[in-house]
Design a protein around this nucleic acid. Sequence first.
RNA 1: GCGGAGAUGCCAGAGAGGCUAAUCGGGCCAGACUGUAAAUCUGGUGCGCCGUGAGGCGCUUCGGGGGUUCAAAUCCCUCUCUCCGCA
Length: 281
Amino acid sequence: MNKLLIVCGPTATGKTSLAIELAKKFRGELVSADSRQVYKGLDGLTGKGRSQDIPIWLYDVVAPGDEFSVAHFVRLARARIGYIEKQGRLPIVVGGTGFYLRALTETIDTIFIPPDWELRTMLATLSLEELQKRLNKKRFEKMNESDQKNPRRLIRAIEIEEKGIFAPPPSQTFDALWIGLIAAPSALKRRIQMRIRARFALAVHEARDNLPPILGAKQVLAFKRGKLTREDAIARWQTEEYQYAKRQLTWFRKEKDIHWFDVTEPDFRRRIIDTVRSWYT
RNA sequence: GCGGAGAUGCCAGAGAGGCUAAUCGGGCCAGACUGUAAAUCUGGUGCGCCGUGAGGCGCUUCGGGGGUUCAAAUCCCUCUCUCCGCA
């Protein structure tokens, strides 16, 4: 089975830099699994790490505002991974979008059912109760309580129910090694705060109207327009980013295959390299 | 110094005698998640105890102190502090 190295974890744990190091060591190339970094530019807002000598794929694949979703990610990532393998190199998927990683490594057929924008527009005018009634009862009852109250999920469920014709793409499985980077909450928070501060000036150049709801975009734009002080904008962005990190952790906690490494421990890089080596060779 | 406004839980901010351990929001904690996953959504958020559960009980909270009342975050007195005007 094809080997796939995955580097995941919450934001600001140094995934990219670790992955680059691993790529150098094991002749690999990176595939980013980050729903924000697919947008062209916005390096400051989305925190892209770059490398002179290691290619990072799936950065900058669409213009901000263009349609992009898990399904796009899975298609692109699979194609890219195949290509990297063909060259005899190790594909290293690195990113914090847990859903993308799961969709890549497991078979989730419904994600390939495309959206019906017309239907969505119509459903968007309905109230929560109306949506709940509109959805097929059996399907509704299978949803958990949180999703039953989530308009977004209800709309998608109705969409699948009413429009779902699709040909599931061939599934693909990997011999994947999951490396997770983590830090204690306080340390993670500190790292996030520092990162945001460091990226702020660049982000100010990038902020503009009509960006997708990228973390920080609103706050940075508000600062640019004089509606927030610099410190307030930074503080709010930091808060959002930390909240995001917590959501990521909630997601990753359920992934049982992850080998976790605390990035505040002195030895973690060497231990990861050892782990990868014994899996890869 | 005089006149006015105000002090509420982590923040902000409602409440103006019993329905208030205190609306809503933010934050925080926990969770969900199968084409917007950056998004979206759910629950919890004074302390202790009882009950499997719905729920129940006790204690301490609305700047400090004192009072009125069967009952006070809400009324009265007083002190402290903050803010805005006038000097």
